[in-house]
Design a binder for these strands. Structure first.
Lengths: 343, 343
DNA sequence: CTGTTAGCGCTTTCAT
DNA sequence: ATGAAAGCGCTAACAG
């Protein structure tokens, strides 16, 4: 055994090596390492000297085997290249880091297979909890395999619901969010009949926004609204295409409400390419209040769904559940409107 | 001991539980778990049945203690909210995920204290390797504490150099990148004397870009170039301010080369706010070829520093080093120019 | 082919 | 206050 170590090339030294060199038992070393129990100042110093001499770092894995936790959480996200998710992942990471947790990030692409793979991986017990970022996980989380893997550890889902005893939600009232945009446009003088909606994603949240649009208009006594719904692909190209379609439709609207900022920017670009002026000839609103809304020209009016606050609450909620504190539970965030040049 | 388990509330079951229920030894269970050695089809099935029955997942921590690896790598990044870093983190995560590694993400903010904290944390051995994303780590990696913590495990630095035997680089030729922008402008008819540079960040890479600008102009026989260098803060506001300063300077230039896309967008916005037309009255170029360059109006000409390729190479390099394969080593990427409306 | 046993590096009783 | 020893859950020799 000692021979084994002797011949091993530069094997990281362990608590036994430290104990031997300091002439004490490993339990004593462990004590000074963790500041537990009482240790004579002299012995402590003697051990600390050896610790410093070698820059010894206890193995987190061995500790984990005893404590049954690696102080790690995972973020199951769709794609951190999307600014809204990047922002969320950033906040979650920073907050958990402050609480001395490591954060594993997973980009599932919203695909079931990938979600399963990540979930299985996570289930092996290196992870103390998971936060699901994105309403896609509403559906993905209901998959049997995914649910089974996630079972037993605290799960928090940002903007979604999961029917598991260990899952909690931070919800955003997207229905209200869209109505904020609609009412803002009406206030700006747009007739409810002249407002259309552009839907891109197919997530649960997107459905809620769509419904929110219908309800907001219905509240204004507008009917046959479905004719005023356009569906396109997420992104600049999708937005451009939606703009084309809208301009070709029978009764040209005066305002366009979009479900996502990036698509809204595409709509604006498509509109401007035909010589239209924003907002004089056509008003456009986005959703998420992302950096995009400040970068495009004219700057985009957008619904602020408070991504950072959502992330902070997810962290608080998950952390309290990890620590067996059940006082903090699911809650809902109320969006606000950030009016800018495009409306 | 069994009593302990008996009284424990829903303790996750372990390999012993499976072995007992299947009526075999733990080593046999381990064998079917890892598809190692030969196991009689019958015993295998018998064990598999129990495995399935409980949805048993072996503890990654216990495995890690034996194998001395948690199959995890860390990304030390500045801030994943910055699209260029988000893109890099995304690619690294996806590629390592394919190779069945978990990826821990750290947002150091470019601060020394945070970098040290993350480095120490990582040094505990849960991590098989690290990739440093951003040229800030050129300086941060030279810090004694950071270097000591990272010592012993393979490190790859994207766009930087580190003087450690275990560190390897994927470099981007930023000097060339900037000269691409300068030469493009000259080709577009701008006199070298009328081109200025806007520097924002204070990283190693920023210095190289600055120098690249000086060299590119010197190649054209231009002197006293330092008068044509402007320094501002990174971001939209910084860009706007730089635009103001430039317009107030004695000899108004006809083209502005920026060290970062986002700042370039701010410059464009500042310019347009005074009624200037881009590119007719002033040409602007950015750097990174990020999504920003497509979102702003007019679309931004930008130097493509091939972030995705860089990330892919980082992964290949790090993975090969982790596996003790030393055939693959440091290398340099050549940027290209993506000409768009702003120039 | 399968079982027994010795670690992996640490924390935590339990003695002393 | 310190030491001895028993695990944590798993893999890998080594027997049989």
């Amino acid at each position: 055994m000692n021979l084994k170590r002797f011949f091993a090339r530069e094997a990281a030294l362990n608590i036994y090596d430290i104990a031997k060199e300091a002439g004490v038992a490993i339990s004593t070393v462990s004590r000074v390492l963790n500041n537990k129990d009482r240790v004579t100042p002299e012995t402590r110093e003697k051990i600390q000297a050896v610790l410093d001499k070698y820059g010894y770092k206890p193995s987190a894995i061995a500790r984990g085997l005893v404590s049954k936790t690696m102080k790690t959480v995972a973020i199951l996200s769709v794609d951190v290249r999307v600014p809204h998710y990047a922002q969320t992942a950033y906040t979650i990471e920073r907050e958990f880091s402050k609480r001395s947790y490591n954060v594993i990030v997973c980009n599932t692409g919203g695909r079931l297979e990938e979600t399963r793979r990540y979930a299985h991986n996570i289930a092996q017990g290196q992870v103390d909890g998971v936060v699901l970022v994105g309403s896609v996980f509403n559906k993905l989380g209901k998959d049997g395999e995914v649910a089974a893997a996630l079972q037993g550890m605290p799960v928090v889902i940002a903007n979604g619901r999961l029917d598991m005893p260990n899952a909690f939600s931070i919800l955003v009232d997207d229905r209200l969010g869209i109505s904020l945009a609609v009412n803002h446009l009406i206030q700006r003088g747009h007739h409810p009949e002249n407002i259309v909606y552009v839907e891109d994603l197919a997530t649960e949240s997107a459905k809620i926004k769509r419904r929110g649009f219908l309800i907001a208009l219905a509240d204004q006594g507008v009917e046959g609204v479905k004719r005023r719904m356009f569906t396109t692909a997420y992104g600049l190209a999708g937005g451009r295409q939606a703009a084309e379609e809208i301009l070709l439709s029978k009764s040209r609207p005066t305002a366009i409400v979009c479900g996502e900022d990036l698509t809204a920017v595409g709509v604006i670009k498509g509109l401007m390419a035909t010589g239209l002026r924003i907002p004089e000839d056509m008003a456009v609103t986005g959703y998420n209040n992302s950096e995009y809304s400040l970068i495009c020209s004219p700057e985009l009016t957008s619904v602020d769904n408070k991504g950072e606050m959502c992330a902070m609450l997810c962290v608080q909620l998950l952390e309290s559940r990890i620590n067996g504190n059940n006082s903090f539970s699911s809650m809902t965030i109320t969006p606000e409107l950030s009016a800018r040049e495009s409306s």
